[in-house]
Amino acid sequence: MTDGSQGAPAQGAPSVSAPGILTFIIADVTIFGVLFVAFMVERSHQVPLFNQSSSSLDVRLGLLNTLVLMTSGLFVVLAVLAAGQGRASVTRQWLLASFVVGAGFGINKLIEYGDKFAHGINLLTNDFFMFYFVLTGVHFVHFLAGMVVLALLWFRTRGEAVDGPLFGWIESGALYWHMVDLLWIVIFPMLYLLGSR
C-alpha cells in the first residue's frame, strides 16, 4: 500500500474487494501480450506487406474508438465513486452513460469491418489481416462482454443499495471495462500507427 494502510480496506480499493477479477485481468492481458509479440514477430518477416496493409486502415476510426473507450472508462470511474458514496441514482446515470458512449465503439467497429469486407478484405487476405481480424475480433468479444456487464449492473442497481454487497460487483465490472480500454491502448498504435503512411 502506498499509504501504509494495510488493514481495513477503504471502500472501492480494487486490491481488497476484487483480487479475483484482477487475477483474471492480468491473465487475460498476458495472453493478449503473447498475441502482440506473435504479431510483431510475423511482421518482422513481412515488413512491407504489413506496412502496406496497415496503411489501408482508417486511423481516424481507430482514434475515435480510442476516445470512445476512454470516455466510457471515465464514466465508469464516476459510477464507482458515486456507488462508494451510496448514491444509487447517480451511479445508474453514469453506468448508462458509459454503456451509451461505449456502444459507439461497437458501431464504429462494425462500420470498419463492413468497409473491409466491402473491399474484399477478410481474415484470409494476408497475414496482417489475419492478425487484424483475430486481435480486434477477440478484443471485440471482450468489449461485448463488457457491455453486457454494464447493462447487468444497471439493472441490478435498480432498487438495490449500491454501497452494499453489490459494490464489489460494480467495482469488478468497472475493472473489467478498464481492461477493454487498456488492451485497445496497445492494439491501436500497434496495428494502425507503426508503419509509415
Binding site: 499509504d3 486490491s15 470511474v77
Partner: peptide, 10 residues
C-alpha cells in the same frame, strides 16, 4: 487512476 491500482498492494 481509472483502475485505482495506485492504492493497491505492491
Amino acid at each position: 487512476y481509472f483502475m485505482e491500482l495506485k492504492g493497491a498492494p505492491r
